[in-house]
């Protein structure tokens, strides 16, 4: 009989691992059967080799992309949350800007990247602006939604005790909105990585996006794939960072079954 712990380990790790093997197998098979040249599709081992051989390069370029992603994301939080509070608490501001925010959310903001580059140049600033732009909307829209979903009874309860606006915000509205803020942050961090890469595509001299472009232009496809993997790891790590923040905020969150 199989120990239940082992059984769980097999389900939790064994199956995903098996899925990965299937995909890798299909990849290798495609390379062999199609007789594809390395420039078109390198075999996994060549990509792995490139990843190891150029690890220092990937790390240094990756670090640039990490900085762009995280700084832009933090900027989106630092600017987005106070603005959301202002919009949620002021009826005129709400009427003026909330419909606009919703409308702008569906605009492909990466399309603005070339213009932002014209304004801010090819350095860090333009990347921060692009990342900020894509991450800002989910954060502000979700935070406003969260603040506005505060149960009326709780606001009345605070009111009946003559709570100050600051007390209402800190003890009722913000905790009630926190699950929404986290949902917004999770969407935002994923978009932030995309924003950083787009910014680097449009015009940059460093970063993983830039490395990807220059590798393909030199027909160094294994390096391009290695950069792609590095980007995926970066994206996953950034997402896990937000999940870690969520774990730390656990005491102030409703049970996960009731979260939005």
């Amino acid at each position: 009989m199989i120990n239940p712990m082992v059984a769980r380990l097999i389900t939790r790790i064994g199956y995903p691992l098996f899925g990965l093997v299937v995909i890798l197998g299909a990849w290798v098979l495609a390379c062999w059967l199609g007789n594809l040249p390395t420039v078109v599709l390198p075999t996994p081992d060549k990509v792995f080799h490139a990843f190891i051989a150029r690890f220092d390069l990937l790390m240094s370029e990756g670090w640039v992309t990490v900085k762009e992603t995280l700084y832009g994301f933090l900027l989106a939080i630092v600017i987005g949350i106070p603005l959301a509070v202002a919009i949620a608490n002021s009826r005129p501001l709400n009427l003026m800007f909330y419909p606009l925010l919703i409308a702008l959310q569906s605009v492909p903001k990466v399309a603005l990247a070339p213009i932002i580059l014209v304004w801010l140049g090819t350095g860090m600033e333009s990347k921060l602006a692009i990342v900020w732009l894509v991450a800002f909307f989910p954060i502000i829209v979700d935070t406003v939604a969260g603040l506005r979903s505060t149960p009326r009874e709780l606001l009345e309860l605070a009111d009946s005790l003559r709570a100050s606006p600051m007390q209402v915000f800190l003890k009722v509205q913000f905790p009630a909105a926190l699950p929404f803020v986290i949902t917004g942050a999770k969407v935002a961090i994923t978009l932030a990585v995309i924003g950083a890469v787009i910014g680097e595509f449009v015009g940059a001299s460093e970063g993983l996006g830039f490395l990807l472009l220059s590798a393909t232009s030199q027909l160094d496809t294994p390096l391009a794939f290695a950069a792609l993997f590095a980007l995926s790891f970066l994206g996953i790590a950034a997402y896990l960072l937000v999940e870690l923040a969520e774990k730390l905020a656990e005491p102030w969150l409703p049970p996960s079954s009731q979260r939005h």
Partner: peptide, 13 residues
């Protein structure tokens, strides 16, 4: 005053 609503309206956090 004390106020009790129809729903318990407790703070889940």
């Amino acid at each position: 005053y004390g106020f009790v609503f129809q729903s318990p309206s407790l703070m889940p956090w």
